[in-house]
Simulated scan of single mutants.
Amino acid sequence: MRLPKSAHTSLPWRIHELTPDFSIEDVWSFRTPGAGPGDFPAMLAAMRAAGGPATLNGPVRLLFALRWRLGALLGWDRASAGVGTWVASLRDRLPDDLRAAPRGPDSAALPLEPVYELDRESARELANRTVHAVMHLGWVQGANGDHELRMAVLVKPNGRFGHLYLAAIAPFRYLVVYPALTRQWERAWRTHLERTSR
């Protein structure tokens, strides 16, 4: 479910101190019934076990395939356009306590590099010729008392073209990608519950 930007900005996430020059593109919530305050690591593990974009439905895989193909043709995703080359990594901004915290595992299924992973929030980043983006995941108590997963996508577009690119892909995110991601991540949580309740 899409949430207002204040659902992210109103909470005391550590990511705020690292991204004052980024804007919030999306905030989304995922239902995790029965989840408690200490279940964020279990949720992350369940998401990783479920796989990345390659395991989503056909329309999403097609969109990602088209995007990677277009990026290859136009040079958007060259190594010289990534984190640490085209843009500095957010890890360069980490205070000492976050630098000492776990980064989180690398994942071949996700084209995002880990920045940090704590007991109730994590951040991963991606950069190319269009945008420097951060996926922030947080663990929040919902209205019914259960905890739920929240995702915020923070962006720093690369000039006018980056802004146009984000505007062009917005309908595909809202109508195709996020609904499929919601089904995958919520199903991952239910699978985790089933396995742990046996």
Score class of each variant (00 low, 15 high):
1 M>H: 15
5 K>L: 15
6 S>Y: 07
9 T>Q: 15
9 T>W: 15
10 S>Q: 15
10 S>T: 13
11 L>D: 12
13 W>Y: 14
14 R>E: 15
18 L>F: 05
20 P>R: 00
20 P>F: 00
23 S>P: 10
25 E>F: 10
26 D>Y: 08
27 V>F: 01
28 W>I: 05
28 W>M: 00
29 S>D: 09
30 F>E: 01
32 T>S: 06
32 T>V: 07
32 T>N: 02
33 P>Q: 00
34 G>L: 04
34 G>N: 05
34 G>Y: 01
38 G>N: 01
39 D>H: 00
40 F>Y: 11
40 F>I: 11
42 A>K: 04
42 A>C: 02
42 A>R: 07
43 M>E: 01
46 A>C: 05
48 R>F: 01
50 A>F: 08
51 G>E: 09
52 G>K: 03
53 P>L: 12
55 T>H: 12
56 L>I: 09
57 N>V: 14
60 V>M: 06
61 R>T: 12
66 L>I: 13
69 R>Y: 09
72 A>V: 13
74 L>F: 12
75 G>Q: 00
75 G>R: 02
77 D>H: 10
78 R>A: 13
81 A>N: 15
83 V>R: 06
86 W>T: 07
86 W>F: 11
94 L>V: 03
96 D>A: 12
98 L>S: 04
98 L>A: 07
98 L>H: 06
98 L>T: 11
99 R>Q: 03
101 A>L: 01
102 P>E: 04
102 P>Q: 02
104 G>Y: 00
104 G>H: 04
105 P>E: 08
106 D>G: 03
108 A>N: 02
109 A>H: 07
109 A>K: 09
110 L>T: 04
112 L>W: 08
112 L>I: 08
114 P>R: 01
117 E>R: 08
119 D>S: 12
120 R>L: 10
121 E>C: 09
122 S>N: 07
122 S>M: 07
123 A>F: 06
127 A>N: 00
128 N>Q: 03
129 R>G: 09
131 V>G: 02
131 V>T: 15
131 V>C: 14
132 H>W: 02
132 H>K: 12
133 A>K: 02
135 M>D: 11
137 L>F: 11
138 G>Q: 06
139 W>R: 06
140 V>G: 03
140 V>W: 05
140 V>D: 04
142 G>P: 08
143 A>G: 07
144 N>E: 12
144 N>L: 09
144 N>H: 10
145 G>M: 04
145 G>I: 06
146 D>F: 05
148 E>I: 09
150 R>V: 10
151 M>W: 01
153 V>K: 03
154 L>F: 02
155 V>P: 15
156 K>Q: 15
157 P>V: 01
157 P>G: 00
159 G>S: 10
159 G>L: 02
160 R>Q: 12
161 F>D: 05
162 G>S: 02
167 A>T: 15
169 I>M: 09
169 I>A: 13
170 A>K: 14
171 P>E: 07
172 F>G: 10
173 R>C: 11
173 R>E: 14
174 Y>R: 14
174 Y>D: 13
175 L>T: 09
175 L>N: 10
177 V>W: 08
179 P>N: 00
180 A>W: 13
182 T>I: 11
183 R>E: 12
184 Q>R: 14
185 W>G: 04
185 W>Y: 12
186 E>I: 08
186 E>P: 05
186 E>S: 04
190 R>Q: 09
191 T>E: 04
191 T>P: 03
193 L>R: 08
197 S>E: 13
198 R>A: 00
